[in-house]
Design a binder for these strands. Sequence first.
DNA 1: CCACTTCCTTCGGTGACCTTAGGAAGCCCT
DNA 2: AGGGCTTCCTAAGGTCACCGAAGGAAGTGG
Lengths: 403, 403
Amino acid sequence: MGGGRVQPVRAGSKELIREINASLVLAELRQGLVSRTELAKRTGLSLPTVSEIVADLLNTGVVEEREVGSSGGGRRPVLLGLKADAGYVIGIKVTETRVIAVLTDLGAQIVERATETVSGGDVGTVVRAVAKVVRRLGRSKQGKSRQVYGVGVGLAGVIDRASGVVRHATYADWHDVDLAGLLAKRIGLPVVVDNDVNTLVANEQWFGAGRGVSDVAVVSIGRGVGLGMVLDGRLYRGAGGGAGEFGHTKVVADGPLCACGGRGCLETVIGEPAILKRTKTQDIEQAADRARNGDREIAEVFDEVGRVLGTAVGNLVNLLNPKLIVLAGEGTRESDLFLPGFDDALRNAVFDGLQRDLEIVVDDWDDEAWAQGAAGLFLAELFQPNLRPDEADRPSLTARSAS
Amino acid sequence: MGGGRVQPVRAGSKELIREINASLVLAELRQGLVSRTELAKRTGLSLPTVSEIVADLLNTGVVEEREVGSSGGGRRPVLLGLKADAGYVIGIKVTETRVIAVLTDLGAQIVERATETVSGGDVGTVVRAVAKVVRRLGRSKQGKSRQVYGVGVGLAGVIDRASGVVRHATYADWHDVDLAGLLAKRIGLPVVVDNDVNTLVANEQWFGAGRGVSDVAVVSIGRGVGLGMVLDGRLYRGAGGGAGEFGHTKVVADGPLCACGGRGCLETVIGEPAILKRTKTQDIEQAADRARNGDREIAEVFDEVGRVLGTAVGNLVNLLNPKLIVLAGEGTRESDLFLPGFDDALRNAVFDGLQRDLEIVVDDWDDEAWAQGAAGLFLAELFQPNLRPDEADRPSLTARSAS
DNA sequence: CCACTTCCTTCGGTGACCTTAGGAAGCCCT
DNA sequence: AGGGCTTCCTAAGGTCACCGAAGGAAGTGG
């Protein structure tokens, strides 16, 4: 049941070696055009090995020889690059009202989009809607069927990623729904389901500000407050997939009642509904506008929101000592109003010495970006070697099929 | 600078395979006596491979053939076991006043002890004291020199484990002291230095309640409050080795001033000095006795301590969703007084659904156990394969020396 | 004492790695 | 234009850890 016992690593074998090394090569190729020789240098592998791996990848069609580089007095290198259109991945963000989907190439660049409205939050409805957009994106406008490697899905809730089971969805009354299984069966593709904040994290880690940084926390603010973490270079999900319930950490003793049943949750102070209530406005934009136009009381509310968030994030830093904090979500649109207070409170809360290398980035994402993140999540799976013993049927670019 | 860029995994090679597989075999052997056939089943390796690896280990002297098991109608298995006295490891806990050292076998069982008093907290003094106990433990009573694989050291502070540099020590004015380097040079053995709570964690993970559990948080309470974490099966230290400053998370807005310069730190509420101050006693035992004998006011203080800690730990659970929480340290001696409040507050703070699989264990450790933990930390190094590319000169049982 | 079971070893094959050598393709200088 | 030099890549051969299959070793039970 999630977490459980440790089987530290998968048993070593020739195939494992090849997967690891192919992944190393692919990881370098994602950074841009590189020659074989350069690849050998960067990965630490010998040149013949790199050549052989590259030959494999060329064969599969994932990589292509691009152009010829320049050199100072010698044979010129053949630059290799990922063949972005060698295949596609679909990323999906499921919200209360809509299913937002994007088709991306292997570089996570968006190629096409599709949306479906849903209502009711019924599982069947959502599955049907997802199947519909996947079908639509699965073929080009000329009607040709596309090579789609799989689908990544993000939604708010507690999700056991290993099994793809939604333990509990935030905006619907789902319990222990095997969404990945249902979808995989329905659309016949590998499906990865994860918490939506984790999709953002994956995107950050692979394509955004967190690229190459091994310890990152992404805090999403908006209606709720979410948290995704990359620890030691890997997305951390907790024993039961429930890590990151940042919005329900208690920050006010005997504070206001939260939808979760607890009292004084962070969300009850800095979530959108809480702000609306305290500013007596209908709409967050309206509140922000007023604050910007001199409404001191409302400005005060935003300032306090920033301070509370700053302290909470500061405590997070004390616990985890990340190198980078990314603030994301709609809530960042009001960052001009709360950032000063946030910064101040953060500085006060963070233990001396953890400050110096800490970086804070505000990154505004729209719904489409979340979907793109979901695609990135699947890509991450695709590009990483299988070190764990379970996950045998994970999708992979590096595990060779028929050679 | 610490953390930094990701080099996801070490390049694959035959040696890596062997290291991984030897580690798998060793991991099984640590659980008890096992036959070759059984090892093959458990590790997923083929029998010939297991035999070969075992042959290697027998050769090295780490493993030995013990006895012959029983079978139902067939050749009886040769049971293999770790040869505990094949070598030793020294674990050391450095405190303000003493250097406590233990010599353990490869099963982390204590074989001998040694202590040195230190005063002043000067780096040179500590190094000399450590060297002294190591020298003493390094030879048996008959004066024969022992095979010692290395030394693990734990002390309170922010420590960059990769380099063994003490960024900041809690009870002394050390900054950026390369303790591991100094010690290694002085005693001529591999040295691993880490935060003392992490030594406890290592012990829990390998030999205690956390054995085989992949997500554990160990909270140490006493004079200060510490936190060590195993996340995804690995000790987590943060980008700069500074993770786990649980004692300096802010729990009271504008609370009392802490030694760290901040306000409202957890330590300022539940640390031993804080309790003494609030109960107006000289000695924590005394306070506890009074509470147990009916002093309502003091009992109230302990109850509140429990509640504050419970909420803080609850928030920790919300963030990380561990499977197990271990409470350790001298502070647990008063657990009868604060546990009820702790439990209550914890239950209220933890997000629904993260509760069900959560386990809480109180584990009282004395100073010697911390030293044993330090030994365990080194053993963990010794038994685990090198997956990372750096750490080339890490001590290891599995990387073969001259065959 | 012979069938049967279980444990372990021996042997040969595969594949991924490496090192070494050498061919290919460019530059530069006389 | 052609020989030297540099750089990039491929070819060939060796090593080693894995595996599967076959078989020897050591028991039990009829």
